[in-house]
Design a protein around this nucleic acid. Structure first.
Lengths: 342, 342
DNA sequence: AACCTAATTGACAACGATATCAATTTACTT
DNA sequence: AAGTAAATTGATATCGTTGTCAATTAGGTT
């Protein structure tokens, strides 16, 4: 008895897995014929197919994808690289992508970059070593090496979230510029004139920074420059949003509405205002970003820019599958949801 | 020019990837030596190591894990099978697991079962065909075939979420029975006597059903039987919780507190009560389950049974890595968080 | 019956890494 | 200096599948 050790996980000797050979022997045909039947290759007689299928069933044979991938230089894996999982945005994207991929017999291998360029590079390198048949990246900005690495594999790339920039290949997302402008316009239309902004966590991902800048510039155009922007140090959360809102309001009592980098922050702000007994939206308006479900259930539903996160995952997966339409940029629609907070 | 087609994704011919052989030639050593250096195998002279490393760097060589996995009959992939991604519980688990796995050079391959036994079986079969070095399953109840399939691979299994039952191997989770009893006790201690329960979506996952039953039985013991339980048809969400709460309260006006299957539902209930102008917790108490972050930021923080979801993922991954300690059952602690709603 | 095309089946090599065992070199003893 | 053990390096076979091309069989024609 000896042990296989791989990367820290040790396991007992494994019973030899049933292979094509076993099935072939039982069925009395060649291995390659079994292979063909399993893959539904053309030009197989019904007789042979039957023999193989029944043999495969009795042995409950499952093809070894590792071997197949080695031979084919390509697997049914799709690499999905996201910055983090602790953000409902990305889990929704992953959900959408996985759902579509699964329908086509593809499996998602997950990599988290933690918003770090270097980590992302490392993760991509690792995932590429699995000869995935496609890769989904988040955002348009990556380490310079990444493009070359992926191109060398000749696999389709889909970048998600952002579409303003130069995609490596295809991209699905929304225009954060337009979304921010729509936010500014909405607040203006609703009569707010002294507007603040709250973000968090060094504005990771950098898309939120882009939004803030577009938002501010739009407010300038409207003649009501941003009163103040506060970027909390911590990761986004309702509690952080609550605290930041309290701070911003005390520092700038004139502010009559706040646009937030995301709904978690915005809900925190909204809750803060409710605790303070403010009238909403008369005393203070709140506009979030993403349109998460819970924001619709608050006593005063949270106004927010709704983004199609799940759909983004779905479309990303679909783009991978239809590599015929290359270099496509899919601009998904966001929507201004007017709850009761604006 | 011809095409590789695999499972619906077609890609152009790929430039030949750089292999061990290329590195070996450049370094003037044998392939196996390169392999050893790359894997940090012992008994390698510094001279050789240097030659190899510099050659590998100039070629920017990345080992092909597919080939390695085939030879080793084991990969650095870990199969993670979850019911769904549209539930913050599972994304937190995945987050925790991925973080630990990544530290050890392992990659997570994701499979979603959609709460279906058959789908889960299928997914497991698929993932096993990648010779993962371990597998994480959700819950303790699976198709009968699953155990055999995994055992055949001789890889460690960790089941998460639940620990009450017969784990296949190791398990990490909480005692849902005890958690439900703690919930009942807490409500009793806080003076509530007419208690209701709200769940959703056919009580998927079935753990929530187990909780409801333990909860009800504990209330019986306390001499204050459950007034009513309402299981909404739809998937859990704050809106559903809101509606269910409204219904339950009008059907049973005597109810003075509600225990929810999860925080989404509970927040919905809380928001409903706030809209109605109820005094909380005097008129109505609310107790959630999971302790999600946003519940701490509401004007009246939501009381909830806090569950260690992220940690569950972490511990699950750690258990996989330390397969020496087999058949471990890790009972993580839940905690009754008393916000202001009880 | 001889012949030809099309359909079906199979033999073989290859994908890239690594376990095994053998060969070589080095280091150390006496 | 000879001998032995230890460290280092290499040759070979192998993991399970599938692309390529060759071989066989079936089906139809004249």
């Amino acid at each position: 008895m000896h042990y296989f050790v791989f990367m820290g996980i040790a396991s007992n000797d494994k019973i030899n897995r049933t292979t094509l050979r076993d099935v072939a022997q039982l069925a009395g045909v060649s291995e390659i014929s079994v292979s063909r039947v399993m893959r539904n290759a053309p030009n197989i007689s019904d007789a042979l197919r039957q023999k193989v299928i029944s043999a495969a069933n009795t042995l409950s044979y499952t093809p070894n994808r590792v071997a197949g991938a080695l031979r084919n230089q390509s697997s049914n894996l799709v690499a999905v690289v996201l910055p983090s999982m602790s953000n409902e945005v990305f889990s929704a994207v992953l959900d959408g992508a996985e759902t579509v991929l699964a329908k086509h017999g593809l499996n998602a291998v997950l990599g988290l970059s933690n918003y770090s360029r270097e980590r992302e590079l490392q993760v991509v390198r690792e995932l590429l070593s699995w000869s995935p048949s496609g890769i989904i990246l988040t955002g348009l900005h990556h380490d310079a090496c990444i493009e070359g690495m992926i191109r060398q594999q000749g696999i389709p790339i889909v970048q998600i979230m952002d579409i303003e920039g130069n995609p490596l290949d295809s991209a699905v997302g929304i225009s954060h510029t337009k979304a921010a402008e729509a936010a500014a316009d909405h607040l203006y239309d609703r009569g707010f004139r002294k507007i603040g902004y709250i973000g968090a966590w060094r504005e990771q991902p950098d898309r939120s920074r882009a939004r803030r800048l577009s938002f501010a510039s739009r407010l300038d155009t409207l003649g009501i420059p941003l009163v103040a922007a506060k970027i909390a140090e911590e990761r986004s959360s309702a509690l952080v949003g609550s605290a930041a809102t309290a701070d911003l309001c005390s520092e700038h009592p004139e502010i009559d509405a706040i646009f937030y980098a995301n709904d978690d922050l915005a809900l925190g702000g909204l809750f803060h205002a409710m605790s303070e007994g403010l009238r909403i939206p008369e005393d203070m308006g709140f506009l979030g970003f993403n349109g998460i479900e819970i924001g619709k259930a608050t006593p005063t539903p949270l106004s927010s820019i709704e983004t199609p996160r799940y759909e983004m995952g779905v479309r990303a997966a679909e783009l991978l599958l239809n590599s015929e339409g290359k270099n496509l940029v899919v601009d998904l629609n966001f929507k201004v949801f007017q709850g009761g907070t604006t």
